[in-house]
Amino acid sequence: DTTLRITLQLPLKSHLGQNLLMFKEEVEAKSDMKIEIYDSAQLYRDNEVPQAVGAGEIEMGVASLTRYVGEIPAVDIFYMPFVLNTEEKVRAAVAPDSPVRGPIDDAIRDTGSHVLWWQAYGGSVLLSKGEPLRGPEDMAGKKARVFGKWLGEWVNVLGGAPTLISGSEQFLAYQRGTVDIGMTGVSGVVSRKLWEVMDTITAVNNADIEFIVVINEDVWEGLSDEQRNILTTAARNAETSVRDYMSEFEANAFKEAEANGMTVHFPTDEEIAAWREASAPVIEAWLAESGELGQQLLDAAESF
């Protein structure tokens, strides 16, 4: 009998946890494989997952895609400002054999992990008090929460001061004014009730947040063809489910935020053009670091 342990940083009741449960049920119903979920970072924090799964400390894990940036700078194509800023573009980019996802999955395989499926987490929004951010000039001189290297670079390029704040510290940081501008996935606004501390959302979609579920490559190779088929099918079902759920959830989340007194600003085409132009230096810097693969992914993404 085979036991596959999965480590997850978020609690089981989060939508990523529920998605794992769905996968577990299908796999256990169709085979004698057992799936054990270790949620809420009891075993690993997000940033430790790539190495832990790659080295076979644990069979499976969920990590945000950007956690691979230390080894594969190109994965942050999803954090490049305004490159994948609509749902159609994102769906095209994360399709299993797409020219964006395919090379990323291959590169991750080199780290010792096989990618089973991608879990959608939604686009990034900016939070502020009083006024929405109508353009890059509104970022200048402000302290902004960021959650990764290239998002930090982006804020830097726009003249803001990037401040690394963990998900759980966000609420206090906004309430106390440690930062002026918030940045998070829109689901974070709902789950953390950020409307109690911020009143304006700018749905700027500067980045797309993705999580991936990986399994150790040796464990994967050690399974029978039948087992691999069952896992792949269950993974595909889970993937479709979570992405459809997320589209619906995002639309509702904006409504819920408005119902709780927030103003939601969707940038106009001119505003997006201004944002995009001011952000260009970030993409150049990233291309210099992510090399050929980065260029290849960017070309593919821009063709969508």
Binding site: Q51, R67, T111, K149, L164
Partner: peptide, 22 residues
């Protein structure tokens, strides 16, 4: 010894804003 050795050989960095070797 495995983790630092592996990180060194693969050139893995912390991936944070400072981006120091892992």
């Amino acid at each position: 010894k495995d983790a630092p050795l592996n990180s060194f050989l693969r050139g893995r960095s912390s991936g944070s804003m400072l981006d120091i070797p892992a």
